[in-house]
Write a protein that binds this DNA or RNA. Structure first.
Length: 482
RNA sequence: GCCCCCAUCGUCUAGUGGCCUAGGACACCACCCUUUCAAGGUGGCGGCACGGGUUCGAAUCCCGUUGGGGGUGCCA
């Protein structure tokens, strides 16, 4: 058990794990590990309607994916806020007994009505000195002291709030249940949290929570509010408008290391990144160098394009063996793994996400003899030149006897091109479209080598037939193989 | 409305008074390489929001303006 600082990550359970949450979790994790402290996971399930056991599992799985393992000695939890309901209520009563809170019988509508009549904002302290006793339907409100509250924030410095601008906020609802503000503080207190690192949106709550800590007779924790993540409209990333779910990115074939690396560079730069000319850093380096004091103060745009660039970089950095293994997960079970391994080196550097793998190599797995659906535009372009049909005809003849290696296949095409005086770049188009149905794909001769002589010749001949017979219309692309 | 935060290339950022004719990364453009597409290499485009101070000297400090964001629940 660690004795160092205690951080906490306190998500509310939903079916989705927010990428912004992933970032704050990562920051807490880096700090907890480097400082020899603890990362406490607390599920904020106060709102019972939202609580489902599988959601908690989803959170733990998501954390594990980004490298925050519940098996790590620095990990503690999960704790559940709902388990502490009694403590929250007890603390509220304690606050009432000590005179830090009072009951009020005004309903929400009545409060609004009064504010309107008085021309004030929010609750005006109507019941402050009425000495009301607890009763059903009455809310317990905190008696905000006069003066001001200074929040010492590790990323922003001191932030001063005039208490006069903070209304006597609710601690206990009319039905006796505690609100988030209170529950959050009590849990942090009970779990001996020393450092609260969370998103900037909580900054306005902080003076209220700090007053609660003090009213309860405790020193508040160290606060740190990191900037929020925003979309291209510069609005806080929201589940409704934006793609925020970590699970969505996992499904799209993003690598955990790339995601973690990218998330950490939002609002923070690894030392040495500039000199290295690269922002790609290992988690070890992050853990070693991440400091709250170095975090930027302004919101950061979550740029999927840059994430994709990182991801491509990480894919290219994998060893071939690792790449083949991971890519296999993306392939249909019936596809031959050895055949894939043969072409793998040629697609590894052409990817931005793992999800693109099947699409890059599918032509190698079409059933032998299946009709090929040619991309109309690609077909037209490849077979527009008048040399295309004769070239293909000769190529079929040549390929009947040539040794079946990429080099030989290439040499043989080059030899045939000569009389036509065309470049290899153009000459490879007709056979490529004939064999793969498209004009782009992995290197052609390597692909043919993997495909094999029989199926290659078959596809070449089928295309030739269509080219001759379909004339300029190529109407003949029969049904799709896949 | 009120409170709080923020402000360097399109984006993420380096920069903590002279090393800045502002550096890097992503994106974009061009060229090279080339077996299509990528990858890789080289180069390019592009920024200190504005106005006042302070100072010998300001992207850096202060004030104001403008702009953006967050918060203002008996949600979390």
């Amino acid at each position: 058990m660690s004795t160092g600082p205690r951080f906490r990550f306190a998500p509310s359970p939903t079916g989705s794990f927010h990428v912004g949450g992933a970032r704050t979790a990562l920051q807490n994790w880096a700090l907890a590990r480097r400082l020899g402290g603890t990362f406490v996971l607390r599920i904020e399930d106060t709102d019972e309607a939202r609580n489902r056991p599988e959601w908690t599992e989803g959170i733990i799985d998501a954390l594990a994916w980004i490298g925050i393992s519940s098996d790590d000695p620095h990990f503690e939890g999960p704790h559940f806020q709902s388990d502490h309901a009694a403590a929250h209520v007890a603390a509220a009563h304690q606050l009432f007994e000590a005179g830090h809170a009072y009951y009020c019988d005004l309903s929400g509508e009545e409060v609004q009505l009064r504010a309107k009549e008085l021309g004030t904002t929010g609750y005006d302290g109507y019941s402050r000195d009425r000495g009301l006793d607890p009763a059903p339907g009455r809310v317990l409100r905190f008696r905000v002291p006069s003066g001001s509250t200074v929040v010492h924030d590790l990323v922003r410095g001191d932030v001063t709030f005039d208490n006069a601008t903070i209304e006597d906020f609710v601690l206990l609802r009319g039905n006796g249940s505690p609100v988030f503000l209170l529950a959050n503080v009590i849990d942090d207190l009970e779990m001996a949290i020393t450092d609260v690192v969370r998103a900037e949106e909580h900054l306005p709550n902080t003076p209220k929570q700090q007053m609660l800590w003090q009213a309860l007779g405790h020193e508040p924790p160290r606060w740190a509010h990191v900037p929020v993540l925003v979309n291209e409209q510069r609005k806080k990333l929201s589940k409704r408008r934006d793609k925020t779910g970590l699970e969505l990115y996992i499904a799209d074939g993003y690598l955990a290391d790339a995601m973690v690396n990218y998330l950490m560079t939002l609002g923070w730069t690894p030392p040495g990144a500039e000199a290295a000319g690269s922002e790609i850093v290992s988690w070890a380096e992050v853990e070693d160098a991440f400091r709250l004091e170095d975090v930027t103060h302004s919101p950061a745009f979550f740029d999927v394009k840059k994430l994709a660039a990182f991801n491509g970089e990480y894919i290219r950095r994998m060893s071939l063996a690792e790449f083949v293994e991971r890519a296999s997960d993306e392939l249909p079970v019936e596809w031959d793994r050895d055949r894939f391994a043969a072409i793998a080196p040629h697609i590894q550097e052409r990817l931005t996400t793992m999800r693109e793998v099947p699409d890059k190599v599918d032509f190698l797995f079409w059933p032998d003899g299946a009709a090929i659906a040619y991309e109309p535009a690609d077909w037209d372009k490849a077979f527009a030149p008048d040399w295309s049909v004769p070239l293909l005809t000769d190529l079929i003849e040549a390929y009947r006897n040539v040794p079946w290696t990429a080099d030989e296949l290439k040499a043989s095409l080059e030899q045939l091109m000569e009389p036509h005086s065309i470049k290899l770049g153009k000459a490879q188009a007709p056979p490529r479209v004939a064999v793969t149905g498209r004009s782009v794909g992995p290197p052609l001769f390597e692909s043919l080598e993997v495909l094999g002589r029989d199926e290659t010749l078959r596809r070449l001949s089928a295309a030739l037939a269509v080219a001759i017979d379909g004339g300029g219309t190529h109407a003949g692309a029969p049904g799709s193989p896949g």
